[in-house]
Simulated assay, not measured.
Amino acid sequence: MKHIKLLAFLFIATLTFTACSDDETLPEEEHEEEVITNMDIVLTPQSGSVVYLSSEDLDGEGGVDPTITGGTFAANTTYTGVITLTNKAEDPHHDITEEIEEHADEHQFFYSASAGLSSTFAYAGANDSNGNPVGLSFTVTTGDAGTGTYTVTLRHEPNKTAAGVKDGDITNAGGSTDIEIVFPITIQ
């Protein structure tokens, strides 16, 4: 009988200790990675024609290659760009741009031009809560005529205080790439 009482006490004690847990020891909820199927960029010059760049990859990485539409820019012109990101694999479509705005401290866009293009990029629009750029809005100033590519990269959790990152240099940014698109570009 003593053994039964002792076993019952140990069983109840075990249940009590395992049922109580310290919330601080639970793993932190991870932010689910965004699924981005579409990147659309509208570039508006001070005067002249608007340029639209787009990428669509409904099946994600691998499988069918994305459909990428580049653009033709006027030489020696400044354009204001606005990026929209969407997950069109969901029905209804999910606006990822809103998530980027909500988690601005965790995201930053980077822009670069290939060797054949004379172009400079600058951040515009809203910054994150620490005053660092996000890059959903930007400007690009074209130089002389040429052909090449523009690469647009969204980094998740970059080190925004690393050297050059605030100015758009991806070299020391770290983090992980949420999406990177290479657009064919002509400047004429």
Rank of each mutant, 00 (worst) to 15 (best):
M1S: 10
I4V: 14
K5R: 11
L6A: 15
I12Q: 07
A13Q: 04
F17V: 13
A19Q: 14
E32Y: 14
I36N: 06
L43G: 00
T44N: 00
P45L: 12
S47F: 12
S49A: 15
L53Y: 09
S55V: 08
E56K: 10
L58I: 09
D59I: 08
E61A: 13
G63C: 05
I68F: 12
N76E: 13
N76C: 13
T77Y: 12
V82G: 10
I83W: 00
I83N: 02
E90G: 11
P92A: 07
H93V: 15
I96Q: 10
D105S: 12
E106H: 07
F109I: 00
Y111D: 00
S114C: 05
G116Y: 04
G116K: 01
S119E: 01
F121E: 06
G125Y: 00
V134I: 08
G135Y: 01
L136K: 03
L136R: 03
V140D: 02
T141I: 07
T142C: 01
G146I: 07
T147M: 11
T147F: 13
G148H: 05
V152P: 01
P158D: 05
N159A: 07
A163F: 10
V165E: 05
K166N: 09
G168M: 01
I170V: 07
T177Q: 07
I179N: 01
V182Y: 03
I187E: 08
